Lab assay of single mutants.
Amino acid sequence: MAEQVALSRTQVCGILREELFQGDAFHQSDTHIFIIMGASGDLAKKKIYPTIWWLFRDGLLPENTFIVGYARSRLTVADIRKQSEPFFKATPEEKLKLEDFFARNSYVAGQYDDAASYQRLNSHMNALHLGSQANRLFYLALPPTVYEAVTKNIHESCMSQIGWNRIIVEKPFGRDLQSSDRLSNHISSLFREDQIYRIDHYLGKEMVQNLMVLRFANRIFGPIWNRDNIACVILTFKEPFGTEGRGGYFDEFGIIRDVMQNHLLQMLCLVAMEKPASTNSDDVRDEKVKVLKCISEVQANNVVLGQYVGNPDGEGEATKGYLDDPTVPRGSTTATFAAVVLYVENERWDGVPFILRCGKALNERKAEVRLQFHDVAGDIFHQQCKRNELVIRVQPNEAVYTKMMTKKPGMFFNPEESELDLTYGNRYKNVKLPDAYERLILDVFCGSQMHFVRSDELREAWRIFTPLLHQIELEKPKPIPYIYGSRGPTEADELMKRVGFQYEGTYKWVNP
C-alpha cells in the first residue's frame, strides 16, 4: 500500500466541504435556525453545542446559521458558553472563530407547556436576519415526558411559513410498544414523516454505516452471507464503567431499553437485511423493517440478565456495585447486563442465532459485530482449526478484520490463527472521521433520513421486546451478580454456547 501524504486539518475539512456542497440537498446560502429545546441540560452542553461548534469551526454548516437555545432556566448566552465550552476542545488559535460562533447564538427562556412562551420564541426567531423565511431545525434534547406539549406548541407557534421545518427526537422513544405508539401517533398528527428525525446516534458511527458497503459492494461476501456458512452472529456493546452516581436515570430504563432495543437491534438489521433497491432512505429502511418483521418476540429462556457488584480487589469506582450508587433505588432489580438470542425467521437466516450482548462495568470498552462461520467440513488438521470470524469493530479503534487459519512457519503443516486486517487509523491517516452527532446533524440539514429511525421500524423493535420488558417488570427477577471489570455473568457464556457459538479464547485482536 502506497504511503499517504499527511494533510493538514484545513485540507481534510476542505475535502469534506467539497463532498457536502456538491450535493443538491445542502442549501449552503439559505438562512437556517437550529433550535435546541432543553438548552440547559446535560445532553445540550456535552453533545449538541459542542457538535454545532465543530461543524461551524470546520465550515460545514450553511453560511447563515443561527443557534437558539430554549429552556425553562433563566440563562444568558454567557451562561450557555460557560457550561458548554469546556466540552468544545477549542484551541487558543480558534479564539476569534469561537467569538464568531457565540455571536450567532441567542437564548430564550420559557415554559414547555405555555403557548405564550412559544409565541415569544417565534418572535425572537423572526427578528433574526431573514428569520421569518429561514429553515428551522428543532432538536428535542428533553425528557420524553414533555415531548407531547413541546411538539404541539412548536407546531402551533414556531413553524417557518416559507422555509422547511424538521424536528429531531432523542431516544428513548417511549418505554414499550404502547407508549411508543402513543408518542408516534401524537407526533405524526403534527408533522409529516419526512419532517421527523428520530435519532439513534449509533447509526451515525462510521463502521455501522460501513456495514452496507461491506455487504453490498464486495462480491466475495454475497455468496457466504447466509445460514449455510454463518453459524452465529454476535452483536456486542461493552462499557468498562458503571453508573457513577447517575444511576437514578438509568434505573428508569435499564440496559435493554438503553442499548439493546435500539443500538444493537439497528446493527442487527444492517447485518441481516436484503440488498435495498438503492441507497435512498426509504429503500434502506424498507429492508430493515422486513428483517424486524421476521423476528419473533424474545423468549425468556433465551435471556440472561445481570447486575454488577463491587470488586473487592478493585480501586475507586470498581469497588462499588450498582446498588451502592446513592441515586439507585434500594434493592433495585434493574439489569445492567443483558444477553438475548433472537432468530430472523426467513430463508437466508433460518436457524442462525443472533446474540445481542450489552452491559456496564465490564472488562473493556468495545462495540462490534462478529460473524462466526461454520467449521470446515472434512477436517484434515486433527481438530487444530478454529472457526473463521469476520469482525466489524465499531469502537474504539474502528477496524474490519477476518480471523482465519494460516500455516505456522516451519517444517510442518501446523495451522495457527491469524488475521486479515483493515484498521482505519492506519489505512486512512488523512481522513477526519466525523463524530456520530456531527454526521447525523449534517444529515438533518441535508434532509437525508437514511440513518434515522422510521415509525414502522420503531414499532417493530418495541413489538419484539415489550413482552419481555413487561414480564421483567411484573416478576422482578433478581439479576445474576457479576463482578465489576469482569466479562459479565458466566451464564451468558453458557447461553451463547448452547445456541452454537464457540468461544476459543486463544486469539485476541490487537490494534496495530
Rank of each mutant, 00 (worst) to 15 (best):
A217T: 06
V68L: 03
E18N: 10
P62D: 03
L75R: 06
E19Q: 08
V5Q: 13
N105K: 00
D114T: 08
A109K: 10
T31N: 09
P172H: 08
I187W: 03
D194L: 02
A71F: 02
F87N: 13
F216D: 15
G69T: 06
L16E: 05
A25F: 11
S157M: 11
L20N: 07
V213P: 04
F102G: 01
R120L: 09
A217F: 00
F173H: 04
E156P: 03
V146R: 14
I167Q: 00
I48L: 11
F26P: 14
R17A: 11
I196A: 00
S117K: 03
F138T: 01
E193K: 04
Q119E: 09
I162F: 10
K171G: 08
R57Y: 02
R192H: 10
V77R: 06
L183K: 09
R246Q: 14
V213Q: 14
Y197Q: 00
G59I: 01
F88G: 02
E99K: 07
Y202S: 14
S40H: 04
D42A: 11
P144L: 12
I187K: 02
R182N: 12
G222Q: 06
G247M: 12
K46V: 06
F253Q: 14
I224K: 01
V233F: 02
T91K: 14
Q161Y: 11
Q111K: 08
I255C: 12
A115G: 03
L16A: 05
P50M: 01
T51P: 03
A6K: 07
L7S: 08
R227N: 05
F34W: 05
T145S: 07
D113L: 06
Q111R: 08
L98Y: 03
N210H: 14
R120M: 11
T10K: 10
E19W: 05
H155L: 03
F102Y: 11
W225A: 01
E244S: 12
G242W: 03
D79R: 04
E94K: 02
L128W: 08
L190E: 06
I256G: 00
I35N: 03
I168Q: 00
D113S: 08
G222M: 09
D100G: 05
E193I: 02
F191Y: 09
S160K: 04
K45N: 13
K97D: 03
R215G: 01
K152I: 12
K95N: 10
Y197C: 01
Y139L: 03
R219I: 10
Q133S: 09
F66Q: 10
Q4L: 07
H27I: 11
G245Q: 12
Y118G: 01
N153W: 07
R81Q: 04
E3K: 11
G248V: 12
F102S: 01
A44E: 00
E99D: 12
M207H: 14
S179G: 04
G131I: 02
K205R: 15
K46A: 10
F241G: 13
S179L: 06
I36V: 06
V5T: 08
G23A: 15
S123Q: 10
W54V: 09
I196Y: 00
I256W: 00
N218T: 01
N122P: 00
G69Q: 02
V208I: 04
Y70C: 05
R81L: 06
T65F: 10
L7T: 04
W53S: 00
T236E: 14
E193W: 02
Y118H: 04
Y147G: 15
W225S: 01
P143W: 05
N135V: 02
Y197I: 01
S29Q: 14
R9F: 05
Q178Y: 13
A149L: 11
G245S: 09
L177Q: 08
E94W: 04
V146T: 08
Q111F: 06
F250L: 12
E156L: 10
H124S: 04
W54P: 03
H27F: 07
T31A: 13
I80Q: 05
E94R: 02
F66N: 04
A141L: 04
S157Q: 11
D79F: 03
F241N: 12
L98A: 02
I48M: 04
V150P: 01
K95G: 08
G204V: 15
P143C: 04
L75D: 05
V150H: 00
K47H: 10
V5G: 05
F191V: 02
P240L: 10
L20H: 03
T31W: 10
M159Q: 09
S189V: 07
S84M: 06
F221K: 01
F34T: 06
Y139C: 08
P223S: 15
I230G: 01
I167N: 00
R72S: 10
G174T: 07
Y202N: 15
F191I: 02
L183A: 12
N185H: 09
N135G: 03
I187Q: 03
L177W: 10
L60M: 06
T145I: 12
D114Q: 08
D58P: 01
T91A: 11
Q209W: 11
G248N: 07
F21A: 10
I48C: 03
A2M: 13
V208K: 01
G131D: 08
S123E: 09
F237T: 05
E244I: 10
L128M: 10
V208L: 11
A109E: 06
T10F: 08
A90K: 03
A231N: 08
G110Q: 01
V150Q: 00
P92Y: 08
F87I: 05
I52P: 00
T91F: 04
R74T: 04
G248E: 15
D79K: 03
G254I: 02
S180H: 04
L137T: 06
S184N: 09
F66P: 03
F237R: 04
V213F: 05
P172N: 06
R227I: 00
R9E: 03
S184Q: 06
G245F: 07
S179D: 06
Q28S: 07
N226E: 04
Q119R: 13
L203F: 15
R17D: 05
S132K: 15
E148D: 14
S40K: 04
F88P: 00
N185K: 11
D194R: 08
E244P: 07
F253A: 05
Y118M: 13
L140S: 04
S29E: 14
P240Q: 08
Q4N: 07
S132G: 04
N135A: 06
F250M: 08
S106Y: 12
K97G: 03
S188M: 11
A115R: 07
Y147Q: 15
N126T: 08
F191M: 05
E206G: 09
R57L: 03
L137G: 04
N122C: 13
S179R: 05
V12H: 15
V233P: 01
K89Q: 12
N165L: 04
H32R: 06
A127C: 12
D113K: 06
N105C: 13
F102D: 01
R72N: 10
E239L: 09
Y49L: 13
A44N: 00
A2S: 10
R104L: 06
L98Q: 02
R72Y: 06
N185W: 08
Q11Y: 08
T10S: 15
F87T: 03
I33M: 08
I255H: 02
S179A: 08
N226V: 03
I33P: 00
P172Y: 06
Q119M: 10
G14I: 03
F191E: 00
T10E: 14
H186K: 09
A134M: 05
R72T: 06
E244N: 12
L235W: 00
K47D: 06
L96P: 07
G110V: 00
M212L: 06
V213H: 05
L137W: 01
L16I: 14
A134H: 05
D251P: 05
I168T: 02
Q178E: 05
S123K: 12
R215Y: 02
Y139V: 05
E156M: 12
F253V: 14
R182M: 07
L98R: 02
K152V: 14
A44L: 02
M37A: 07
V77Y: 04
H155W: 12
R17Q: 08
S160W: 02
I35G: 04
E193G: 03
N210P: 02
G174P: 03
